[in-house]
Amino acid sequence: MKKRNNPNSKWSIVTSGIIKNNPTFRLVLGTCPTLALTTAAMNGIYMGLATTFVLVCSNVMISLLRNIIPDKVRIPAYVLIIATFVTVLDMVIEYALPDVYEILGLYLPLIVVNCIILARAEAFASCNTIGDSALDGLGMGIGFMLSLTLMGAIREVIGAGTIFGAAIGNLPEYSMSVIAMAPGGFLVYGLMMAAVNQISIRKRDKALREELRIEELKPIIIKEGK
């Protein structure tokens, strides 16, 4: 248990991407696929898995080459590495899962310019060991997938009355299709981000109050101690 609290442990690298540095709600990276593909919960899982694959592979590759790539051309080199993995993924999905290929459409090749991947390459993989970089990619990817799936589920329930494609009672009759359309994407994303902010504001205020209480109690404790 104690090991989990160690800020440098392997476990905390993974959880950091899921909660503390969640790419969707905290870092606000990769917003294009987030808005475009969250019309259904299942799409979130597909996109999340695809991005995780590219993130882990490119993080490992960049970490492996971090001492070889000259500093001046590092960004083009990273983009090239990422583009290679995206091309591999594109070909595999087109062959093995044509339905998923249809859903992801334009956004599959656009993983190349997903800022999460370049940001992690620059901020983490370029200065960390291979193992840590892989874990960082995994954590970020899972964080991305969970946020996308959650947002997809909310939009699917409200917008279409279904969840993972299955109808919930007679909810489809009362669905608000605008939530599944473009305006709903912006709205749900904004409200979810505000909710996440609210949680962290609460936490901060609570910690602040606690600190104040300790400050107030300090003289009394010192007095009693004497």
Partner: peptide
Amino acid sequence: PESFRGFPITLVAASIMSMAFT
């Protein structure tokens, strides 16, 4: 409201703009 400052309010405004563009 504090929790809406920055990105959230921008996204909500974008949502209304997007509705107009539909």
